[in-house]
Structures are given as C-alpha cells and as structure tokens.
Simulated assay, not measured.
Amino acid sequence: MSEPRWLSEPDQKAWRSYLTGSQLLTVQLDKELRDSHGIGLPEYEIMVRLSEHEDRTMRMALLAMDTTMSRSRLTHSVARMEKKGLLERFSIAEDGRGVNCQMTEAGWNLLVTMAPTHVESVRDHLVDLLDPEEMATLGRVFGKVTAHMREIGKGPVDTPPIDSEPSTPGS
C-alpha cells in the first residue's frame, strides 16, 4: 500500500476553512428561514426546484436528483410539506410507478414570501463578503467540483447538470 498524499499545511487550512465555513453558512441560512417562515433550507430548495418547472411539477425521482437528496429523505420532507398544504403528490397516469410532486398555490405564495429573506441572507453571509473576482472564482471552483462529482457518480445522488439561471424567486 502506498503512502497517502497528505495535504500540505496551507491545503489543510483551506480545506478545514471550507468545511467549517460551508457548514456554518448552511446552518445560518436554514435558521433564518425557519425563524422567519417556519420552513428550512432543504424544504425551501424543494420549492425552488419545483418553481423552475412547468406547472411547478416534477417527478419525485428527478426532484431527488435535483436537490441532491436521497429519495427517502425527499419523501419524508415532501410528506411533511403536504401536511402543511404546500405540496401535493400524485401518480403519473402514463407510468404506473412514477409519482409527481406539485407545488400548491399556498406553496408558491410561501416561496414568494421566503425568497427575499433567503437572497438577503445569502448576500449578507456570502456574496457581499467577497469581491466580484472572488465570487467568480468561487463559481468556477465549485463548477469544477460539481462536474467532477457528476462524472464519477459519487455524489449523494446523481445530479443533472444545471443548465440556466433560475427564473423564479429563490436561488
């Protein structure tokens, strides 16, 4: 067995800074959404993804891939959101096994209300801390990481490529 290629001290500091910073950022964004709207970041992302599709509807399997959630986690999240009247699930008539998820009007109204909170939080805790060049670098870096993870298929789930800018309130 060969010796691992250990991280240099600067690489290790950068790696730990990324881990800590990304975890703290995610927790803060989730907290601000929950405190203001009673819905956390994972549920918000489900609604954003649905809002980007025709009729605010997606097949559950595609929604799981798009949100990088396991199918089980997505199913539990959607069930909770159904109880709140934000989403509905229904069988796909042409496909006996498939299930669609659709955002209700109440879900859409909540998303429209939540989006300014989320965007302001992202600005406060990330975007406005960086200069435009740093933000562009961040986008390039994680574009490479995302492409690599999709290529090797070892992300939480196989995620489809991101084709365009969001056209809805949200991201």
Results as ranks from 00 to 15, higher is better:
Ala79Gly: 07
Glu134Ala: 13
Lys84Gly: 10
Arg56Glu: 04
Glu54Pro: 02
Lys154Gly: 09
Val127Gly: 10
His125Arg: 15
Val127Cys: 00
Thr68Ile: 14
Val48Pro: 00
Glu45Ala: 10
Cys101Trp: 01
Asp131Leu: 00
Val112Arg: 03
Thr146Val: 13
Ile152Gly: 02
Phe90Gln: 07
Gly139Leu: 04
Arg71Gln: 05
Leu29Lys: 06
Arg80Cys: 10
His118Ala: 14
Gly155Val: 00
Gly139Thr: 07
Gly107Asp: 00
Ser2Trp: 06
Arg89Leu: 02
His53Tyr: 12
Asp11Gly: 12
Gly139Tyr: 01
Tyr44Phe: 15
Ser36Arg: 01
Leu126Ser: 09
Asn109Lys: 04
Ala136Pro: 05
Trp6Val: 02
Ser22Thr: 13
Ala147His: 10
Gly143Phe: 01
Glu88Lys: 09
Gly170Asn: 04
Glu105Met: 07
Asn109Trp: 01
Glu45Tyr: 12
Thr137His: 03
Leu24Lys: 13
Glu3Thr: 07
Ala136Arg: 09
Lys13Tyr: 08
Arg16Asn: 15
Gly139Asn: 11
Thr113Asn: 06
Pro160Leu: 00
Ile162Tyr: 04
Met114Ala: 12
Ala64Ser: 13
Met58Ser: 05
Arg97Trp: 07
Trp108Ala: 08
Ser121Cys: 12
Ala115Asp: 04
Leu87Tyr: 02
Ser164Trp: 02
Arg97Leu: 11
Gln23His: 14
Trp15Met: 03
Leu129Thr: 15
Asp30Gln: 00
Leu74Ile: 06
Met60Thr: 05
Glu3His: 14
Leu138Pro: 03
Lys31Tyr: 14
Val141Thr: 14
Trp108Glu: 04
Lys31Val: 05
Thr146Trp: 05
Thr137Lys: 06
Thr159Phe: 01
Val145Arg: 07
Val27Gln: 10
Ala79Asn: 06
His53Arg: 14
Ser77Gly: 03
Leu29Cys: 07
Gly143Ser: 00
Ile92Gly: 06
Ala61Gln: 10
Thr67Asp: 03
Gln23Asn: 08
Ile92Met: 12
Glu32Ala: 02
Ala61Trp: 05
Met1Asp: 15
Ser121Met: 03
Ala14Asn: 14
Lys13Asp: 09
Asp66Ala: 13
Asp95Leu: 05
His76Tyr: 10
Ser164Tyr: 09
Arg73Thr: 04
Lys31Trp: 10
